[in-house]
Amino acid sequence: MANSRQLHLRRDPFQRPSLTPGPLGHNDAASPDSPRSFVGDTPGPLGMKDHGDPNIKQLSGNVAGLGGASAARSRQPKPVNELSSEEELVKDPRVKALLDVVAHAEGAGYNTMVKGKGSQPITDFGKHPNVIVTLSKSLKSTAAGRYQFLHSTWSGLNMPDFSPKSQDEAAVKLFKRRNMLKPLLAGAVEQAIRNGNREWASLPGSPYGQPTRTMKELLEVYTRSLTRWSQR
């Protein structure tokens, strides 16, 4: 290999790969450590940035990592604000965590009707079940789903069905209505929760006279959920 430079000085480097595995041609195609799928094109100074042609598709190892940062950025959720669509907002880990807070406070899942006489698991998610459940002699309710939507409330949200996806996005619509998103996205989680206490009677400070969760408990739920969703 000592004479390889003299043998090929007059050859077009784009017609034949470099045969110099040493420092000058480091990482050229003829290097015993180079993958055979690479050609020895050197777009920069001689021996530098070999295999760096941006048109090369057969990348592997550290070379493939050159585009890793861009790929990772492209997988990040788009920045959102309180005016973003429900579809975009529901992907944000902070919004997901607040949805978990409300579901925890209400003690409900996607198939849950309010507990009382006449309550049963929801099996048809084509529409709000609109079952009148008797809670006491003086109180009846149609609350249903993970966020315990009353039928009258649900009817005004114009959702296509009662699927989990629709329930999540409908709850985000209520977040908007109750000004919960702006403080949430600014980091004022406690204020966001308090702003929703006229929509959900289980949230701290609710004026409806029903049992409520403590703020400490709900902030702990939020923190755990945010950690989980941020890692996905």
Rank of each mutant, 00 (worst) to 15 (best):
G109F: 13
S74V: 03
S141R: 14
K176D: 13
S136H: 11
P93R: 08
R146I: 06
A72Y: 07
G68I: 06
K165F: 10
R94T: 09
I132H: 06
S163Y: 05
G118A: 02
S166E: 05
R146Y: 02
E88N: 05
N81A: 02
G145T: 04
A71K: 03
A72N: 07
L89D: 11
K115W: 03
T153I: 01
N81K: 00
V80R: 06
Y110T: 09
N158K: 15
V101E: 08
K173A: 02
V114F: 02
E82C: 12
Q148G: 04
K140V: 10
K115R: 12
A188C: 00
P121K: 01
K137G: 15
T153Y: 13
A171W: 14
D161V: 14
P160A: 09
D161T: 13
D124E: 04
K78A: 05
K182F: 03
Q167R: 07
K78G: 13
R94Y: 02
F149S: 09
A97L: 07
K182P: 03
V172Y: 03
S163R: 05
A72W: 13
Q76W: 03
V63N: 07
S84K: 12
L185W: 11
T142L: 00
Q120E: 07
V114G: 08
E87M: 09
D92P: 14
N111D: 15
K137E: 03
S84M: 04
E82F: 08
K173S: 15
G68D: 14
F162C: 13
K137R: 10
T153E: 06
K78H: 08
